[in-house]
Design a protein around this nucleic acid. Structure first.
Lengths: 348, 348
DNA sequence: TTGAAAGCGTTACCAT
DNA sequence: ATGGTAACGCTTTCAA
């Protein structure tokens, strides 16, 4: 025997297909008694609905958008690539996904972009956690659009879900590796490069890092953040003076992007391999730097996962069906020289 | 306008639905000229097939099996859980998944089990890489069944695909972490506990571990493997005499299962936190051991990924459609105290 | 409150 | 070599 269908239910309950459908979708216009009869049949037969067939018949189309910052860092390009790939697939599954670019670090531009997105079923958003952004998100939500924060969280009130890693834990992981790699009982300074302290993910990573260093490696001192604006040029300009001032440098923690600048400085000063360097997001540059020993560890998140998770949540919340929380937890990946995958860090 | 359908193709090409279908599925019985006309229409309209509708109409049922060793270790239970979960989902997608238990380390039992699986569309198999197993696999394949090796590889001739991590790289990762965690320039011995040297994954991990220690940390000496048979009791029995003989022990590398025995011995001897311990597979026990500091790092593979990947490959190969290699690469996960996820290590 | 019948996009059988 | 038509499991419109 194969799986029971709506026809089977209709037959055993002695009603028509239409009535079965009404009960199945909790639509009104059915007597309580009839509902009960159908429910019984459903239970007895162990019926489970064929989602594909349902969607086929329903012809549902989801209107979704991903809002991403510009200009693109290597990491953001990877995110964009993942979204584009998913958009192609999602088209098959009745979802239209638009990508909207917005200047980074510009809350007003984000607000404008969100305004234009009125009427969408769902929006995934990577933006600074500022009042303007939160207001715009609230307005969108009031219109019935589902909003998911991507990679960098927005405060609870402002979004329906967060798709990304726990950035405090990511910072703690970096701190633990830094302490252990520098060596037991070693003393010295650790330089920290961040993109912007407007970016909530950066703030959180810094906090986690500091916490672990303080509690577990008190002889290591984390210096104040250099703000590199996620830009290689800026990092290359700000880092050397810092290095000149710090005689006991044991490591560098790069929280955000602009790592090309960092790597260039390290090589120029012949520091590559002589101090412990930890950075975020497995870009091609950092992959190469792991291989040649310039960087010791990369803390990462699988952009494919993040984006797919955001899409799943967007669809689920748009339909009002519950999400499986455990399934949407994004792992904090640790990459070292030896556990790099042959090519892209992608999977499914 | 919505997406073009077979009807649109039929209309613009001036043929019937049946002919369109023949072309779409590369079935014979269509004049080259007609094929060309249809192809053109397909291209012009930018047609992409609706998989759900196709599957609905096709009513294909896949008969699949996962062959797993008994008795179950914690890791194997996780694998089984993942398969069961997937089986529930897969039922929705027209796949029947059976789980077949086979005594571990018994190649003949595996061969018998495979014999009984004749007629299946696909089999995922976790078994020792021995001649009997390889022969049985070849017989299955001759009957048209797709065979995927799971977690532990079978030599190339014997299977269609391997779903699992690169175990040499996993061993190298363990070696790198061991060397760096023990500390720069430190000398001493590392004990190695394996399950069985019949298990190909264990052999490969050992090799990778040794290679890195030799090349990058020559002052660390890896001792000959203790064979714990993946059993806590056995490990607890064999480990103490070894510890007594080694005065300069700096670390322990546990390649397989039976880690409850290892942890017990470490605590009894008050070694917990005093030597570097690295093990495989994020079981509840090892998760707890990371938290309390008994174990320093766990190299792992996401069983959910492994199992889903095996299923995808099984279906694809059964249908003769190509797989996307990059998508089926399983990551080597590194878990430390700080990057543990709240609950199960599952995701999607 | 209920039912009949026509779709959704694809495939498959039976004619021609 | 090609076409007509009835499925597949579900939803939806219209009528009763």
């Amino acid at each position: 025997m194969s799986r029971p269908t709506v026809h089977d239910i209709a037959r055993t309950a002695g009603v028509s297909l239409a009535t079965v459908d009404r009960v199945l979708n909790a639509r009104p216009g059915v007597r309580a008694k009839t509902v009960a009869r159908v429910q019984t049949a459903i239970r007895d037969l162990g019926y489970v609905r064929d989602i594909s067939a349902a969607n086929l018949a329903r012809q549902r189309q989801y209107r979704l958008a991903f809002v991403l910052p510009e200009p693109a860092t290597a990491f953001l390009s990877a995110v964009r690539g993942a979204v584009e790939g998913l958009a192609a697939l999602a088209a098959t599954e009745r979802a239209d996904i638009a990508i909207v670019d917005v200047p980074a670090f510009d809350p007003h531009a984000v607000a404008r972009a969100l305004h234009d997105l009125e009427g969408a079923d769902g929006v995934a958003l990577m933006a600074p956690d500022t009042p303007q952004v939160r207001d715009a998100v609230r307005r969108l939500k009031a219109r019935g659009t589902v909003v998911v924060a991507l990679v960098s969280d927005l405060s609870d009130a402002g979004r329906d879900h967060f798709a990304g890693i726990n950035n405090i834990a990511a910072g703690r992981t970096a701190g633990l590796l830094m302490g252990r790699f520098v060596g037991p009982g070693q003393a010295g300074s650790i330089a920290v490069i961040a993109g912007s302290m407007l970016a909530r993910d950066h703030v959180e990573r810094r906090k986690g890092f500091d916490d672990v260093l303080q509690s577990d490696f008190p002889r290591l001192r984390a210096l104040p953040s250099v703000e590199g604006r996620d830009d290689a040029q800026t990092v290359a300009r700000l880092l050397p003076p810092l290095l000149d001032r710090v005689p006991d440098l044991r490591g560098i923690y790069s929280i955000g992007a602009g790592n090309r600048g960092l790597v260039a400085v390290l090589k120029e000063r012949r520091l590559a391999g002589r101090i412990t360097v930890i950075a975020h997001e497995l870009t091609p540059l950092l992959r190469g730097s792991l291989v040649d020993g310039t960087v010791d560890a990369v803390i990462s998140q699988d952009v494919g996962h993040v984006v797919r998770s955001a899409l799943r949540v967007l669809k689920a919340k748009a339909d009002g069906v519950p999400i499986i929380a455990a399934q949407e937890r994004i792992r904090i990946d640790v990459f070292l020289r030896e556990n790099l995958l042959p090519s892209g860090g992608e999977e499914a």
